[in-house]
Design a binder for these strands. Sequence first.
DNA 1: TTTTTAATATGATATTTGTCATGTTTTATT
DNA 2: AATAAAACATGACAAATATCATATTAAAAA
Lengths: 225, 225
Amino acid sequence: MGKCEQCIIKQFNSLKALTKDELMRISGCKTSMTIKKGDVIFEEGETLNGVYCVKDGICKLSKLSANGKDQIVKMVVKGQLLGQRSLISDESSNLQAVALNDMEVCFIPKSEIIEDLQKNSKFSFEVLKEMAHDLKEADDVIVNMAQKSVRQRLAEALVYIHDSFGTNPDGTLSVLLSREDFANIVGTATESAIRVLSQFKRDGFIATIGKQIKIENIEALKRVE
Amino acid sequence: MGKCEQCIIKQFNSLKALTKDELMRISGCKTSMTIKKGDVIFEEGETLNGVYCVKDGICKLSKLSANGKDQIVKMVVKGQLLGQRSLISDESSNLQAVALNDMEVCFIPKSEIIEDLQKNSKFSFEVLKEMAHDLKEADDVIVNMAQKSVRQRLAEALVYIHDSFGTNPDGTLSVLLSREDFANIVGTATESAIRVLSQFKRDGFIATIGKQIKIENIEALKRVE
DNA sequence: TTTTTAATATGATATTTGTCATGTTTTATT
DNA sequence: AATAAAACATGACAAATATCATATTAAAAA
């Protein structure tokens, strides 16, 4: 089992603010685990007993709406933490987390991390900064959902996924999402998402290889209105 | 000028976690101010030099969308803080704040409060809890925007405003919003918001006295689908 | 490989929402 | 009080999106 003190992943999140001693203690009680693509990491309403540090892979955070559709609220990648919000509010999870890839994560028990949050103000300030960033992003998503068309939102989602999560050697998006996932990010019916993607393909903005998507003209996607 | 140590407002926000000494220091450098209804407290993109503690009144936080419409993201009332997010991220404001009532606020300079955030971990943990709560609410708004109809969103907005901000003696909502404000909360065209309100009136869910709104059947509004 | 199942795709149509025009009421100003 | 300006209201129509039906294709299982 790897040691937190030597783990490079923590450079990308607020755990970097912990002292060497704190990291050694965390290291001693953490659990490394592998999560398979499609597996549920935690359910909406579930009580979380700690946070996950994502060492590899990517997952989606979604919430079930009254109409039976899942809305994807955020995607969490390698380097980020998962579950901090619920931990801090001391509430059950507001969202469901499902792996989009095979993932490697470390689970850190609540008791250990809460103590550091309350004592190490450098650490809690780092977590605070991350949360402030997430809140800004969430506000921006609200405005987009409320004011932009499905076509615009889908174009932006493609650009976001391309820029944030990168591409495979053949140029296809490295995160493989179903058409339903795209619909659930954008907040529309699966058929509508498919129709818009088909249109983008006809326009030459994207190409598809099976369900894989390759962005052919990112500037055109950015210009979509 | 009032003293922070004796101010009851702070019981409603994270300032309660400050020590007596810290409060006395804050008290010495804060500025009390009155803001008139309709006045802009800060603009989107403006650099904030501190936080506001709302002693009385209410304001809206909104963001201008590319299509020229303002989207109201949150409302801040008596007892709450304003501007913490930008302060923590050390970025210019993502949102515009406009008073919906005459307001009384205290302005606390950034330099004073940042110091406490970094040194008093009890305080930063309280701010963290507030931010976590805001983030949860924002996630819920995203899901509503994406998955619910204008009619549902407007019904929920009325219930929310009723339950959170209360009513006048005559039963009308104590926060007086224009039809345009309602449209900007719900994320729809002003005409659409007006139409839905008219329908609610015809259905007997609400009554209107000029632009004032009185909720007649809150249960029916909660059941709207 | 064959069969079965799930995902993707598209047409037809209904519903929701936006836009523009225009009239009415309320509020502010002279 | 008279006038002007803003906010509210509603009709007519257009555009966007959802829904249902049904192919088609791709993936999984036998």
